[in-house]
Amino acid sequence: MVVAVSGMDSLGERAAKMKEALQKSQTITDSVVSILGSFDSRLSVLETAMRPTQIRTHAIRKAHENIDKTLKAAEVILTQFDASRQAEAKILRGPHEDLESYLEAIDQLRSNIHFFSGNKGFKSSDAVLNNANSLLAKAISKLEDEV
């Protein structure tokens, strides 16, 4: 029976140690929960403070995208104006110097007419179309005079 009492004491000691370990674990858990709660609270405050900056950053990014799109569209239009100017110079020289180049200029002029006819929202598209159509008529007349 002495052995049984000794085993019970050992079991009681182990139970006491387990209870103590569980209490320490609970204390640590409570401490970690408190720390995490503090982090969560601080993060919420930081997120609230950052929100206006995020909104401004988004607005700036959107403006940058819009500016890029506008610049690309303007580049396309300016390329058309430049091609029209080059075609005009070739057409005004006449077909007698370089017939192939002259015909390419007429094709470019037609392409520009097509472009500006499809994009009538531009402020000066009507003026460009009138000029291009007039120039095309001159180009055809010069070709007829050559034949």
Rank of each mutant, 00 (worst) to 15 (best):
A89Q: 09
S34K: 14
F115N: 02
S141G: 06
L43D: 10
E47T: 06
I91G: 01
V5R: 15
S38K: 06
S25P: 07
V45E: 12
F39Y: 10
S31H: 00
K120Q: 14
A105T: 00
A105H: 01
M8Y: 05
K138C: 01
A15E: 04
L11Y: 10
E47S: 11
M18L: 09
G94H: 03
S10R: 14
Q86A: 01
E75N: 12
Q108V: 04
G12D: 01
L129Y: 06
K120T: 13
S124D: 15
D98W: 08
L103F: 11
D98H: 11
K90G: 00
E47N: 15
A63D: 12
R61F: 00
G37A: 04
R85H: 04
E146Y: 01
S44T: 11
S41M: 03
N112M: 02
G94D: 04
L11M: 10
E65S: 05
I77G: 01
T53F: 11
L103C: 09
G121H: 05
D68T: 04
S141Y: 00
I113T: 06
S38H: 15
E144T: 04
M50K: 12
L143N: 05
H114E: 12
A105F: 03
A127K: 15
S134Y: 06
S111L: 07
D126M: 02
F81C: 03
T48D: 09
S38G: 11
A74R: 06
F122A: 01
I106M: 12
Q108S: 15
F116K: 06
A49E: 09
R61S: 13
A63Q: 15
N130K: 13
S141A: 12
S44K: 14
A73V: 02
S31R: 09
A63S: 10
M8K: 07
E100N: 14
L103I: 07
Q108I: 04
V45K: 11
